[in-house]
Amino acid sequence: MVNLIWLAFILIGFIYAALNGDVEAMSRAVFDGAKTGVTVCFSLISILVFWLGMMKIAERAGLLDALARLLRPVIRWIFPGIPRDHPAIGYIISNLSANMLGLGNAATPMGIKAMQELKKLSPHNDEASPEMCTLLALNTSGITLIPTTIIAIRINFGSANPAEIVGTTLLATACSTAAAILFDRWFRYLHSRK
């Protein structure tokens, strides 16, 4: 899918430029685009270095565990099919907490661990169980507290107030997470009636 989109951008761009008689613009675009890509990545270094440092402090101080305790009752309600005290719950909580703090690198291995545990509970070998679908839904809805990457990019392009989108992002992410839970419940219900 990504391969197709990438190729489509380049091909359509080329055909359009050729029809407009401005193929030169395309060579300029190639070098400008590459340069912007690198510049943006370098501007990300500062924020990522700082933020991952902060998050390490949070992790070692036990803040991740505190967040996990707070989330436990909610998780039990969202995942009714997991037996009490099953190890999957711990992994799910770590996965979601890490996601909320913007620790994508820590979230992914935890999410995969949780999936492995959920697979042990599932009667089918290669089919996603309802609990697996729920975990996926929560992960794709992108629960974030601080959108660090975007803030870094806004700083790079001279925003007067780079963090002004924190509140709007928080509210939007709350909407999409609520939607994820509702849609998941609805499809889980339809699925169970089949």
Binding site: F9, I10, G13, M26, V30, G33, G37
Partner: peptide, 14 residues
């Protein structure tokens, strides 16, 4: 990011 920026840049500039 370089790969995607180039493709989008071509798409926009054209």
């Amino acid at each position: 990011l370089v790969g995607m920026m180039v493709a989008i840049s071509i798409f926009r500039e054209s």
